Each structure stands twice: as C-alpha cells, then as structure tokens.
Simulated assay, not measured.
Amino acid sequence: MEIVEVKKDLLNVPNTYIVCYCISQDGAMGAGVARQICNENQKMRETVKNEITTKNIEVGDNVYYQNPQNGRFIVNMITKNNYWNKSYKMEQGEYLNNLKSCLMNLKKYMKNGC
C-alpha cells in the first residue's frame, strides 16, 4: 500500500480520498476542521465517541469512520487527551506508523466488502 500525503482543502477533496486529521481522546470535535468535518458527517461525533469509550482508544490510536451517504472514510488520529490540551510530543514516526497500521486495516476492511 502506498501512502501519499496530499496538501489540499480537506473539505473539498473527492470522496475517494481518505481524510486523516487529529482529534482529542474526549471526542469533542467542536472547533476548527474537526467541527467542519462533523458538520458534514452528522453521525460521526457520536460514533467516534462511542468507539473511543467501548474500545479503550488511547492517545496515539486511530478511529475510522465511513460516511454512509458518500462512502468516504475518515481517520481520526487521537493526539491528546482533551480538546484543551496540546498534542502529545510523540515521535512523528510513531504517529505515522500508527496511521499506516490503521490504513492497512482499512484496506483489508474495504477488500472484504465493507
């Protein structure tokens, strides 16, 4: 699997792109790009918060969501505990390795017919 970083407006990329961005472990998503993405994906906040709670998701983990209307996949990278905290200073490679693992799992999920 090839991972390519594309610098574009996250809100205007084609639905075939997997959108990855950072959120807090509390799942607030109430400001910035997180809020805008939640506005376009009405059930995402509730779904992601539920998954964080039930699966004991921690900082450094990723939670993905698929929009049922357009099929777009969104990867929520957990980089801090609460929305008011600053992101943890993990090695950039650690975040990228976690993201790569998440994308590999997502690829398997997509191959199996979602």
Rank of each mutant, 00 (worst) to 15 (best):
T54P: 01
R35P: 04
K111I: 02
R35V: 07
K8N: 15
G32D: 07
N105Y: 09
K86Y: 02
I78T: 06
N98I: 05
I37C: 02
G71L: 00
R72E: 07
A31T: 08
N56V: 07
K107P: 01
N62F: 00
V33Y: 04
V63P: 04
C20P: 01
G113V: 10
N98T: 10
N81T: 06
V48N: 05
M90V: 03
N67C: 00
E91W: 12
S87L: 00
I18R: 07
L106P: 04
N81E: 15
M90H: 11
E51V: 14
G30A: 08
G27D: 14
N112H: 12
M77C: 13
E46D: 15
N67M: 04
V59M: 00
N105K: 15
K111V: 00
S24P: 02
I52D: 11
Y65C: 02
C38P: 00
P14M: 09
M1C: 04
I74G: 06
R72H: 05
V63G: 13
G93I: 06
N85D: 15
K80F: 02
I52S: 11
M1Q: 15
Q69H: 10
C38M: 07
I57W: 09
I57G: 10
K80H: 05
M29V: 11
L99K: 15
N56G: 15
M44F: 03
N39S: 07
Y88H: 07
M29S: 01
N97D: 13
S101G: 12
L10C: 02
K89H: 07
N67Y: 01
V75D: 02
L106M: 10
Y95V: 06
E46P: 05
N67R: 02
T53F: 06
T54C: 03
Q42G: 07
Y88E: 03
N105L: 08
R45H: 06
K100G: 11
M90C: 00
M77R: 14
V13G: 10
A28P: 01
L106C: 10
Y21P: 01
S87R: 03
I37F: 04
Q69F: 12
Y64C: 15
L99C: 11
K89Q: 12
V63I: 14
T16M: 05
T16W: 11
E58R: 13
Y95E: 06
N81D: 12
Y65H: 06
Q25C: 05
Y83C: 04
K7I: 13
Y88R: 09
V59Q: 00
Y95F: 13
S87Y: 03
Y21G: 08
E94Q: 14
T54Q: 14
I57A: 09
T53Y: 08
Y83L: 04
M110P: 02
Y17A: 01
I18P: 05
I57F: 09
N15I: 01
A31D: 11
V6F: 14
C20E: 08
K7H: 07
K86E: 07
M90N: 13
T79G: 07
Y21V: 02
P68Y: 09
C102T: 14
S24H: 03
K49M: 14
K8A: 15
